[in-house]
Design a binder for these strands. Structure first.
Lengths: 142, 142
DNA sequence: ACGAATTGGTCAAGCGGCTTGACCATAACT
DNA sequence: AGTTATGGTCAAGCCGCTTGACCAATTCGT
């Protein structure tokens, strides 16, 4: 199996497992793409335009996505402290809980790999991936 | 950076680079999802239902996707040699050329990683990924 | 300081990929 | 042979995303 195919297969399965894990922990009505939005919102919140840039979609699409997660109680829009035009989208407590659930699910998947690789190889795998990973935003590509 | 994040970042960039490379080689009007279909059709062709199973979509969606790549000259429908109900979808010469272009683009991306990792680490990376890769079909998940 | 250009955001309409539901033709089971 | 299962298409509708237009607040240029 080619390196690129193996990588895509592993990534696809990881995405699926994270999604399943999030659902299993009681957070429904979310699609994998939302996870990338949560990851951007998690630290300190973000504006719609910023989110759009990171997701690689138009700001209208990002705004629509924000509507959805706001309606479902995962985030809320606040006035931006420094720019009256902008609105700062921040996670609610439920949004944080969902983010933690995703991290747990990801950790579970990684742990399963650890069983096949062992601790030392896991470290080298992380180290190698980190060295070839791009700096930019993580987009739900393909 | 977490292992899962690094993996998704690398996979996302790889997908993007393959797509860009395919476009740069003159094959337009295709989306990354088509690549997964091509990969399934490449060896000996496949039926619409089989394709649907591998892509994780309904057979109607798969049939529609086949319509599209047939219309664009990448594949054609033939009567199935063993089942009069079924139709065997096979790549045209242009479809094969596109598949080769995707493989070249993937090889280019992998080569770029080689510059950062060195040959030995590349081998261990491949070997480790292969050990944790799922056996099933490679789906365009997320 | 003032008007022009830029930027953040939303509203509206439309496209395209995918889904569910119904249906036909062939194959497989009993 | 008759029933059930399978491969495929047609039709309608949903939903995420795009383009286009527009408003409000900020920043730039002179």
């Amino acid at each position: 199996m080619a390196l690129s195919a193996a990588l895509l297969a592993v990534a696809g399965e990881l995405t699926q497992r994270i999604h399943d894990g999030v659902v299993a922990r009681g957070f429904e009505g979310l699609r994998p793409a939302h996870g990338f939005a949560f990851a951007r919102l998690a630290p300190d919140g973000a504006t719609v335009t910023d989110l759009a840039g990171h997701l690689g979609v138009t700001k209208q699409a990002a705004s629509q996505l924000v509507d959805e997660i706001v309606r479902k109680g995962y985030a809320e829009r606040r006035p931006h402290p420094e720019d009256a035009r902008a609105r700062l989208v921040v996670l609610t407590e439920r949004g944080w809980a969902c983010t933690r659930a995703a991290e747990e699910a990801a950790a579970d998947a990684v742990r399963a790999w650890g069983d096949a690789l062992g601790e030392g190889e896991m470290r080298t795998l992380l180290e190698q991936l980190a060295r070839i990973a791009p700096n930019g935003p993580i987009r739900p590509a393909w």
